[in-house]
């Protein structure tokens, strides 16, 4: 097919990828980009607003906010990728399996998912952290597990729709193996809603991590994450709004980036929108 690259079709994805890419570069090359160390205190310049020396001002113990945001991208992005990845992979496998095999398999898997669903996300994460132990990696795993039921229900619903399509019946009648039907016929046709959900999970993971570190379960101070910066900033809203605004904007930009990628991919991958 002589279809050239269609810029307009991929525009939202490219735009989102530029934003997310920039944040990723910040995370990877933080020591080269950050103007100061994220840990160095300077009591002479506490709670300052933006200035030429400190572009985004300083926090309550005189640390450079821009540097902390840049370093904070490291943990926030790791959490987002790993947690959403765990939710996406395990949730999809469970949901597709439940819908495809049906009957008792479906019943057991989905009741277990509902069990996970019935706990508030934060409570579930706290319980999981308590049993896994406190570390950033365990926070990512706990947040990932929180996402599994959502992904699994979405995957199950999407699979049920695809299962009713005649091409799946044809595949069975031709004699395709379960594995081939699952990977070649079903999975490619349910990725679109899952990608959108993944984009939302990315943003939610960043927020959940901040809640966990606020409770003392995620990354511990002085380690900078956008979540704990936002939480600390809350206490100093009246004195220095930039302390909350800066990490808030960072989260906002990341969320926008991921959502653009998710929505854009859904549209760009829709075969009916070609031509």
């Amino acid at each position: 097919m002589s279809e050239g690259f269609d810029f307009y079709r991929w525009r939202p994805v490219i735009f989102g990828a530029v934003i997310v890419g920039a944040i990723l570069i910040c995370a990877i090359f933080a020591p080269l980009i950050a103007p100061y160390s994220p840990y160095d205190l300077d009591y002479m310049v506490m709670l300052q607003g933006p200035s030429a020396t400190h572009w985004l001002g300083t926090d309550e113990i005189g640390r450079d906010i821009l540097s902390r945001i840049i370093y904070g991208a490291r943990i926030s992005m790791q959490v987002a990728f790993i947690a959403a990845g765990i939710g996406l992979i395990f949730g999809t496998v469970i949901g597709v399996t439940a819908a495809y095999f049906g009957g008792i398999t479906d019943m057991i898997l989905m009741r277990f998912m509902e069990l996970l669903f019935s706990f508030p996300a934060i409570l579930l994460a706290v319980v999981l952290m308590a049993s896994l132990g406190t570390s950033v990696l365990n926070a990512m795993i706990a947040i990932g597990i929180v996402f599994i039921p959502g992904f699994s229900r979405l995957a199950r619903a999407a699979t049920e729709v695809v299962l009713r399509e005649q091409y799946v019946e044809s595949a069975r009648a031709i004699g395709m193996s379960h594995a081939r039907i699952l990977f070649r016929e079903i999975t490619p046709n349910i990725v679109a809603p899952l990608l959108v959900e993944a984009a939302i999970a990315f943003s939610y993971a960043i927020l959940l991590e901040s809640a966990l570190s606020f409770l003392g379960l995620g990354a511990q101070p002085p380690e900078p994450t956008w979540g704990n910066m936002l939480n600390t900033g809350r206490g100093f809203m009246a004195q220095s709004a930039i302390m909350s605004i800066a990490p808030g904007m960072a989260i906002f930009l990341t969320v926008i980036g991921f959502n653009l990628i998710g929505d854009g991919l859904r549209d760009a991958l829709d075969p009916h929108m070609k031509d």
């Binding site: 005649q166 044809s170 009648a173 031709i174 046709n189 009916h272």
Partner: peptide, 24 residues
């Protein structure tokens, strides 16, 4: 034997819109 049956008997379905995997 089942595989042989799957080769021997083939279907044609009603709805041309949903008979094929749209991604292939």
């Amino acid at each position: 034997e089942l595989k042989a049956f799957r080769r021997k008997v083939q279907p044609i379905f009603q709805n041309p819109a949903s008979s094929f995997n749209p991604r292939q």
